[in-house]
Design a protein around this nucleic acid. Sequence first.
RNA 1: GGCCCGUUCGUCUAUCGGUUAGGACGCCAGGUUUUCAACCUGGAAAGACGAGUUCGAUUCUCGUACGGGCUGCCA
Length: 474
Amino acid sequence: MTGQVVTRFAPSPTGFLHIGGARTALFNWLYARGRGGKFLLRIEDTDRERSTPEATAAILQGMAWLGLDHDGEVVSQFEGAERHAEVAHQLLAQDKAYKCFATQDEIAAFREQARADGKSTLYRSPWRDADPSSHPDAPFVIRIKAPRDGATVIRDQVQGDVTIRNDQLDDMILLRSDGTPVYMLAVVVDDHDMGVTHVIRGDDHLNNAARQMTIYQAMGWDVPVWAHIPLIHGPDGKKLSKRHGALGAQEYQGMGCPAAGMRNYLTRLGWSHGDDEFFSDEQAKEWFDLGGIGKSPARFDTKKLENLCGQHIAVSDDAALVTELDAFLVATDQSPVSEVKSVLLRDAMYCLKDRAKTFPELLEKAHFVMTNRPLNYDAKAAKNLNSVSRGILNELTPQLQNASWSRDGMEAVTGAFADAKDIKFGKMAGPLRAALSGRAVTPSVFDMMLVLGRDETIARLKDAAEYQPEAQDD
RNA sequence: GGCCCGUUCGUCUAUCGGUUAGGACGCCAGGUUUUCAACCUGGAAAGACGAGUUCGAUUCUCGUACGGGCUGCCA
């Protein structure tokens, strides 16, 4: 019996939830959730200068939006500083680490010289094998004694076996001269203490894995399964940065992407399961595996994201869509849907959800439901309410009033009307659309009438027939 | 500079030595149509380059080019 899978997401709280980070979190979440494992969250806040509580809140909020629920408490790496130091001192006591008294100036000077000479800038501390009795009474850092012979093999589930010669490894610092732990030590200790079995993270950490392995080995701890995933790039193939526009997960929430569509897109970006493109969370959890992750960086494609979002909206449950739409409105500082409108909206959803890729589009199509009499006609709608079409509405309205209130009944009435007037239905659709919604782009006119009901429909038609254009008409 | 990684249509990708190199988004053309969207049909579109291994390479090896990462008392 192998143990339970434990994954984690460990962002630095220096800003919002980056879209690349969101994908890393998603992969960890999928891997754990698909295997009955645990998905933990740790905030890497050891850099006191750059870490802020606002950033932590933003990251949490972004994950909540994406539906990436984590197990247990949120761990603060900073709060584990004592334990990290304890491990460093244990290594020191076991002679697997040493005190280094080299000053930062000395090291900087060395590097500068090495670079100028075209030689390796790897710093070799003279204190590694120094006699403790020769130690000065001065500030020191604790460095690990990294192996110098042989090689370290990172058995990576995505990148394959990556071999790093040990002479490429430096004696990295574990504890700074002020006694605080360095990230490289903190991650290893935390991952071990938290029981993390699979480390799925950006491939900018691939080389670091070799260095971290020296700590695992020095402590005699099991090395986790590594999976270093390629970072997401912008549409131009360059590393995703500010000039590419939307970087934060929340920005996509603000654009009105449904979370399910976002998950689907992000999952499929750089990972594949045959030809499957559109899938549910359940399928994603079942299918997701490390072997399906590609080795090269993928570019972010907004068009495909939108397409997937549209497909997810189309298959969403009507009531659930209303709820998510409400959440979107609140998240974007708009007023939520009233209770009365919520019911209408849900009933209208069947003719709305096939036509929208995002929530703003959905709202646009739903305008006929959200608006109230007297309607405001936008410019294009107003154009459809000229004197001729008002005349048509005037004659048609009484007939509709007596029609059987079903699609067939309404089609029969309008069809007969069109025949009698010898006009095409297309001629009537524009005015009807304008009258019912105040807009020129709407769902089918019959759908709108069905959703609005007879009374509201007739009232709106009468309003429109009496519409007085402000300026020039006809 | 040193070390490590990557490279199939515009984009995301399938292929795990033998395929007319498949799918999706996007794009183009046509159809349907009640606006928008959707939908249907068809189309253009790819193995970075050069060697080698092999009966046979997109697939394995090496080199080149290009891209990326690491090389901090940052994470």
